[in-house]
Design a protein around this nucleic acid. Structure first.
Lengths: 149, 149
DNA sequence: CTTATCATTGAATATGAATGTCAATTTCAG
DNA sequence: CTGAAATTGACATTCATATTCAATGATAAG
């Protein structure tokens, strides 16, 4: 389970700490640990799944804390919420990850990411045309992956 | 509350009836009535909201029936499920409506639609490149509408 | 260091949408 | 008509999400 960019994880921690300070919130071991494990996870995790993983290294961390911390991470731009139509929120790393869409196989559930530089441009243009200021977007494509066709 | 395309609503009914027959399901007054009211509704409705509206003209129709019928309408291509991040599924008319994205104001909740012909083209191309067969997609842009900026 | 203050934690509980159950009813083919 | 099979609607269940609260922990001021 190799973590991508693990050598640079300090930066994420600084962002979290800065955010907490700025908001008058407190820096706790739990929050740091949750961020660590979230970052070392490659897949899109739900709060539940992340909690299960964290339990293995520290069984004393409760679900609520994981749940609440994921919200904080989303607020400070370290995580991004995505939705694959399976009825639960999933979170993916947001920092240093270009905007992208998801290809979701409705048969086997496999997901794949794809870059959307051009699409993003269109979105900006269209939005500006109608006076809307876009702050984020979600593009999910449902269909059949190569194997399931 | 003017319904768009009300004069042509027979076509939708034929589609529903055809679908039911083909699947060995039965044609009922409730299903027809739910389709009628769904079509005459301009906004994106949740199952709950649609049920509330229907109750006014026929209080004997239950929530379960509305809920299940919305699923049927989605299956036969008359409705499309959309998600505005408010934690409940919403449904919009699908027939005779080109694919489009949604601009969702995160402040006031107002939603606006926009055409995505170009974006759709990109999606098809990208998908084909990786061997994925796209069957549908959802594009939601979050931001601030003109008034909320 | 000590203390006072206020946020955090985690277990339990509440909420609310989505879905399942089932007896009574309705549809529809024969 | 009649019987088999689907539908209905009230209710119950499930499940993710959100909240509550007493105990604990973090932080700033003295």
């Amino acid at each position: 389970m190799k973590a991508e960019g693990k050598g640079d994880m300090k930066r994420e921690h600084e962002i979290l700490i800065g955010f907490l300070k700025q908001k008058g919130l407190k820096q706790t071991d739990q929050r740091e640990k949750i961020l660590d494990i979230f970052l070392s996870n490659v897949k899109h995790v739900s709060a539940d799944e992340l909690h299960a993983t964290i339990r293995k290294s520290d069984p004393r961390i409760g679900f609520s804390t994981v749940y609440r911390t994921l919200k904080i991470l989303t607020e400070c731009g370290l995580a991004r919420e995505v939705n694959f139509g399976d009825g639960r929120a999933r979170f993916e790393r947001a920092l240093d990850k270009g905007q992208h869409g998801h290809l979701i196989c409705t048969n086997c559930g496999k997901t794949e990411e794809f870059a959307i530089a051009t699409i993003e441009k269109s979105i900006k243009q269209i939005s500006t045309n109608v006076g809307f200021r876009p702050l984020g977007h979600r593009l999910e494509v449902y269909g059949l992956c190569k194997r399931c066709q």
